[in-house]
Simulated scan of single mutants.
Amino acid sequence: MTGIPENVVLLADDGTPVGTAPKATVHTDDTPLHLAFSCHVFDARGRVLVTRRALGKATWPGVWTNSFCGHPAPDEDFAEAIARRAERELGLAVHSVRSALPDFRYRAVDASGIVENEICPVYTAIADGDPAPAADEVAEWTWVEPGDLRAAVTATPFAYSPWLGWQLAAWQGDYRAR
């Protein structure tokens, strides 16, 4: 990792970029709307990778969520941002990146009061091996059958990130890599 601060793209309500800000300063109790992405990684057997957020995370520590999330840098292509973040967060190379929920947007407030406020297109990708995640990002991980994940989120939504539940609810058709 470099010493260069990571910037996020700030957005107007209609999704138009209006500036940038350091990621470290954006997530507060009054988080401005900004650009992000979520990625659901599948393996060759069709299982999806779910991760448990590290206990040291500022928001939603210790909850299970989709494979990984991130923020594209200003002028960075989503596929490049996804590959970069997969490597940084999961130690994993991904390929076959595809759009799944291009218009996904959400706002959620963590128990600590920190707000997520994102236009957050959702993607799928394929990985050919197991992750070796960064300890500051991921506490645990597992590959699960997509139907089993849907059932678990429905039965115990409090154990999962809110955006994962909303993404699964918005997913049309089969929840698999496309």
Rank of each mutant, 00 (worst) to 15 (best):
L149Q: 00
P133L: 13
A58P: 01
A127E: 10
A111K: 05
A111T: 09
F68I: 10
P131V: 13
P102L: 07
L101P: 09
A81M: 10
V115F: 03
R88P: 01
G70H: 07
V144I: 04
Y123A: 01
A79S: 14
R105E: 14
Y123G: 01
P131D: 09
L90K: 06
P72K: 09
G56S: 12
A134E: 14
S112D: 12
I114N: 06
A93E: 12
W60D: 04
A159P: 01
P146I: 00
A73D: 13
H71G: 13
R150I: 11
L164A: 06
L92D: 03
A54W: 00
I82C: 10
W60E: 02
A134L: 14
L90P: 09
A73S: 14
P61D: 03
R98C: 15
I126S: 14
D136L: 11
T65W: 03
P121S: 01
S96E: 15
E80A: 15
P61E: 02
D148R: 08
L92C: 08
P102M: 04
V144N: 00
E76N: 06
A111S: 12
D128F: 05
A79G: 11
C69Q: 13
W60Q: 02
A108D: 12
V144R: 05
S161V: 01
V122Q: 03
A58E: 07
A159K: 07
E140Y: 00
E137Y: 13
H95W: 05
G147N: 06
R105T: 13
A58K: 11
V153D: 03
T124H: 08
L101G: 06
F78N: 03
E145F: 00
R88A: 15
P133T: 09
P74G: 07
V115Y: 04
A152G: 11
C120L: 00
G56L: 05
W163D: 11
E87S: 15
E80C: 10
E140R: 09
E145R: 06
I126K: 08
